[in-house]
Amino acid sequence: MNRIYQITFVIFIAILALWQLPWGYRFVFKKQTQTTLPFMLFSPVSHEFSYYEKDDQNNLIGKDLAGRTYTSNELDSVLPLFYYRQLADRHALPDTIAGEAMPISKIKKGRFIFRSSPDDINGPITPLYMLLESEPKRLDFSFPTDFFRCTNQGLEFIDMKTNKIKKVKSEHFTQTLKAMGCQFPIIKLHSNPSVRKAYDNGYLMVDSRHQLFQLKMTHGEADCQALILPKGVEANQVFITEYASHKSLGFVTDMSHKMYLIDAATGTTHSIDIPGFDPTIQDIMIIGNPLIWTVRIQDSMSTTYYGLDAHDYHLYKKKVYPNKQNSFIGLHFTSWKDGYVRTRWN
């Protein structure tokens, strides 16, 4: 019997050692598993990735991947759509950039930042959703007085005050989606439930056949449209966008991790010229302006930068930085890829 107790003690020690020793080793010896990369943007002027770096005297100097160096003022001119306020302050903002007229209003309208992390996708969620009134009577948006949940039969709206199901509203929204060809259950959906925004695009939803729909509430009524995917493409993950340009409804990835932009005017999708983006394991940041998108995709293996044309999303250039691999395998309970506590070896 004593042997059994000794074995349990050894198991305990083994679990804690496998958990704490790799962590302690990394903590003490500061072994970084990921290279620190500069904040790089693709220039519409030089068509090269450009960035700031500190020199030996701690001064900021501009650089690009072609090996050129710039002063701060020069780098502002190399990245005029990112540092446009700095240029405008010095009255150095050009009228045209890359042959295109570029007033400040156009720059402001065309700028956006899109981010997604695996934690957003894989993390635990409470499956209740708020649908805002897209055309409120007053200027500002306000939070609704009900949530909805997705069931196998449709949408179910619940009154917040009474915790009772709103049968009429639930039926109305379910039937409207069904009329557009939606087949329940909804498997993925995304919205921006903030009231501090200029306009509302409602929800992007993926149904059980991986088809794509947009749902809004306009004057209390369901406002739904089926979005057109290229033939054979099955939607997987969706991301709503509500940018000042009003050009896009959002982004969608398909089952083979190809990424598309959804055009707000036509409801069609445009392929983005990057090899793939898997939101469940990769982190993405897109810094967009009217001429260029700089896309950064990170995962455990590498960090890749893409410079894309903002009109047709074709690729100008890409740069891959492999990450240093962690050779010290250990037991972990948490991960940056999801918010769950679970046993994992990596």
Partner: peptide, 12 residues
């Protein structure tokens, strides 16, 4: 006590 996030311990 690794996480206070709701549902974090669902798989644990």
């Amino acid at each position: 006590l690794l996480s206070d996030q709701p549902f974090a311990y669902t798989h644990f």
